[in-house]
């Protein structure tokens, strides 16, 4: 029960206390969380759609990657920090919430999918960078990413309806 104790400690910190007590702090952090997730999902979807051959076929894969990924990364960092603060405010409740756990699992899978793409699939990119028909591995990476990020949003929304 090490994690649950860690959650209980997080919840007892001044930061958590302040977020719980304040009337505006939670909704404000949540708004920042939602805004940044929207940017993460929207920007990564553009790249995924290119990998799937469904959009921006007149532009090279790396061009889309360079345009989009810096925004995806910065927005992800902000979403993670804001999300961490929201988690801290009622850590034990979130930790025990099923949609929350599914969201974290889905994020982990999305991370593995991205790592696999970055370290393996992207290696041979020069061969298909300008192609309008991307290879199967690239299509799988794009499709998996799109599905996982849709699930992240769905589970995230579900937390609000199930957290006690």
């Amino acid at each position: 029960m090490g994690i649950l104790r860690l959650c209980a400690w997080l919840e007892s910190t001044r930061v958590a206390e302040n977020i719980r007590v304040s009337t505006w702090l939670f909704p404000t952090i949540e708004t920042i969380h939602v805004l940044s997730i929207i940017l993460v999902v929207g920007s990564i979807a553009m790249f995924d759609l290119r990998l799937l051959d469904l959009a921006s076929r007149d532009r090279s894969v790396t061009e889309i990657y360079d345009d989009v990924m810096p925004w995806t990364r910065s927005a992800f960092v902000i979403a993670a920090i804001a999300g961490g603060l929201l988690f801290t405010s009622s850590a034990t409740k979130y930790y025990q919430n099923i949609p929350f756990r599914l969201k974290m699992l889905t994020l982990l899978l999305a991370g593995i999918n991205t790592a696999y793409f970055e370290f393996w699939t992207r290696r041979g990119i020069t061969a298909w960078n300008h192609a309008t028909r991307t290879p199967r591995a690239a299509k799988i990476a794009g499709g998996v990413s799109l599905v996982l990020w849709i699930l992240v949003v769905a589970f995230g929304r579900w937390i609000g309806f199930t957290k006690q």
Binding site: I37, I38, L39, V41, G42, M46, V153, R157
Partner: peptide, 15 residues
């Protein structure tokens, strides 16, 4: 959920 996902498409495009 569908509403938020749609917002993310509009928002990213407009950004």
């Amino acid at each position: 959920t569908v509403h938020i996902l749609s917002v993310s498409i509009v928002m990213a495009s407009m950004a």
